[in-house]
Amino acid sequence: QKLKVEDALSYLDQVKIRFANDPGIYNKFLDIMKEFKSQSIDTPGVINRVSQLFHGHPDLVLGFNAFLPPGYRIEVPK
């Protein structure tokens, strides 16, 4: 199903709230997205960076996976 702008805003809020005590992580996520937007990094590059950044936060990883195109996803350890 197609995600909307509201879903993106909601996800960004979720990340911001999670790292309220460590805003550098939220800012790094914004930086990764900006690099993708400027095409400095591609989809696999984004996946690589985000999987490291959100290591230990499987719910954030699953939420991020929803934005990835078919055939791409970050594996979450069970």
């Binding site: 995600l3 993106a8 996800y11 914004l30 997205m33 900006k34 993708f36 937007k37 990835l68 195109p69």
Partner: peptide
Amino acid sequence: LPAPQLVMLANVAAVTASEGG
């Protein structure tokens, strides 16, 4: 582009960042 929803998220993130996070 092959990842329209990721582009959408990136656009929203860029706007959010430009507004101060």
